[in-house]
Design a protein around this nucleic acid. Structure first.
Length: 492
RNA sequence: GGGCCGGUAGCUCAGUGGUAGAGCAUCGGACUUUUAAUCCGUUGGUCGUAGGUUCGAUCCCUACCCGGCUCACCA
């Protein structure tokens, strides 16, 4: 290990501790209070003058004035000032504090709680010993650690120095618990399905591929849990859910991470209208539990999950925004001609009709969907796993939820007709052969499951990271993922 | 993948074709009520990497690496 000057100085101090017979990394600590608990109980503790033992990391500067010294220590939930007097603790301990310890070292301190003359609650130290010597120095005192790459590559330091970062992940944990509780209370069973899959499906995405050596079998990291969860509905469960990582071999941007956390749930004897109610209630509940309110601020806009969410039809919204009736323009060529004829700028030409419709939707509708909005009834070509609408077989019983201009959820009445499903897979297979590397694979075992009969079922997927982005007002997904994917850095 | 911007001390950042700068931190000294302590002094650099141009490159050029923004991709 090559050390810079500051690290070398700290190592020298560490060796000095050892030379004095002091273990710089002792196994045991025995605090009587967390810092937060000590502060809460201050009046009582100060009145009795009892000995309080705290443990924490030295943060900020050590202000040493010859015969008196101040510093602050912090643990997870609080910080407190230490007051050290050479006269009180003696030359040896005072010098030990001054010469052997550094900012970021972790110490155990005992003493009594009082206020200083300036009024700050402080621990008047009688005993002090090191619990952990820190060899790396802290970043700058006031600017802190700002460099994005530095923060993400050393998330531990980011969390340590930028305290509010820990709040994001505490809130994330609360939201996760709330999501589970909401589903558990409605008798959904939490399950775990394979991450390594011989076939991938359930979404339009390119997968990661890996290999099982012993079995000589290629495997895919799942891009969705959908097809396994619906097998469980066939298997007799009336409701199941899974919260876990999906993996998609695609680009990374502010709302996409290579691996991300998805909640999918399926409910027998429900349809997509039931799932709309479930979605509204779930997100409302999570927002309330995690933030204390159903109104959150996202990028300077108040977003209210409280009232019934707006519902718009995809086809109608496109008609309003662009004047195009995509259902009356049922192939790529005529749709593209009409797009040009309508003088619509900023629209790219796509390779399939379905993708062209999606391009129009992404360009003209999505950016304006700030408040939570259900977008209903997607063309069947875009939705190979969703049931057709009885009154219009070109469309499916499907919705997506958009919030803050971002897709948050996707749901449909699940296609349970194995013959129709087979045709959809075949159509996807033709797209795959034609070069659409995100098209679905044929899943014969899934069709076999459907042939035993899957009850009418509603399914829902929610991008959990994106929900946390909204709840914590974070502009990028990597700020709500502890260790987002970064390119490997070559060692110099 | 394209465009634009960036990478200089532990951290936050200036800067110049001619010996590399500041603040904070560190280190040494003074100091018994500090809290961005103060005062005096001090250390610290493959200037992202590799080539090229040049008498001389951290600076100019080229390629590459890493990151940011953005577009594309990603329902």
């Amino acid at each position: 290990m090559e050390l810079n000057d500051l690290q070398a100085q700290r190592l020298t101090k560490l060796e000095r501790l050892r030379a004095k017979g002091i273990n710089p990394f002792p196994a045991r600590s025995n605090r009587t209070h967390t810092i937060a608990a000590a502060l809460t109980a201050f009046e009582t503790l100060a009145a009795t003058g009892e000995l309080v033992t705290l443990a924490g990391r030295i943060i900020g500067a050590r202000r040493v004035m010859g015969k008196l010294a101040f510093t602050h220590i912090a643990d997870d939930q609080g910080s407190i000032q230490l007051w050290l007097s050479r006269g009180e603790i003696g030359d040896e301990l005072f010098t030990h504090f001054r010469d052997d310890l550094d900012t970021f070292d972790i110490v155990q301190v005992s003493g009594s709680l009082r206020r200083t003359q300036k009024g700050e609650i402080s621990l008047f130290v009688k005993h002090l010993h090191v619990l952990t010597k820190a060899l790396n120095p802290p970043p700058e005192k006031w600017e802190g650690l700002k460099d994005v790459e530095g923060r993400l590559r050393q998330r531990y330091l980011d969390l340590l120095v930028n305290e509010e970062r820990r709040d994001i992940f505490r809130l994330r944990a609360k939201a996760l618990i709330a999501m589970r509780r909401f589903l558990d209370e409605r008798d959904f069973v939490e399950v775990e399905t394979p991450i390594l899959q011989p076939l991938y499906g359930g979404a339009a995405a390119r997968p990661f591929t890996t290999h099982h050596n012993q079995l000589h079998q290629d495997l895919y990291l799942r891009i969705a849990t959908e097809l396994y969860l619906k097998r469980l509905i066939v298997g007799g469960f009336s409701g199941v859910y899974e919260i876990g990582k999906d993996f998609r071999n695609e680009g990374v941007d502010r709302s996409h991470n290579t691996e991300f956390t998805m909640m999918e749930c399926y409910q027998a004897y429900a349809d997509y209208r039931d799932m709309m109610l479930l979605t509204e209630q779930m997100v409302r509940f999570i927002a309330q539990e995690a933030t204390g309110s159903t109104v959150v601020t996202y990028q300077d806009q108040a977003i209210d999950f409280g009232p019934d969410w707006a519902r718009i039809s995809l086809v109608e919204a496109l008609k309003e925004a662009t004047g195009l009736d995509v259902l009356a323009l049922p192939d790529l060529a005529t749709l593209w001609e009409a797009t040009l004829a309508a003088g619509l700028k900023k629209v790219e030409r796509k390779t399939t009709w379905a993708k062209q419709v999606d391009e129009l939707f992404s360009t003209f509708i999505v950016p304006n969907l700030i408040q939570p909005t259900f977008v209903l009834d997607y063309p069947v070509e875009l939705s190979p796993l969703a049931k057709r609408k009885a009154e219009d077989p070109q469309l499916t019983e499907r919705f997506e939820v958009y919030v803050g201009g971002m897709e948050l959820a996707n749901a449909f009445s699940e296609l349970n007709d194995p013959l129709d499903q087979e045709q959809r897979f075949l159509e996807q297979g033709r797209a795959l052969a034609a070069g659409d590397d995100e098209a679905h694979q044929m899943d014969a075992d899934y069709l076999n499951a459907l042939m035993y009969g899957m009850p009418p079922t509603g399914g829902l997927g929610i991008g959990f990271d994106r929900l946390v982005m909204i709840l914590t007002n974070q502009p990028t997904i990597r700020e709500v993922i502890l260790f987002p994917h970064l390119r490997a850095r070559e060692e110099g």
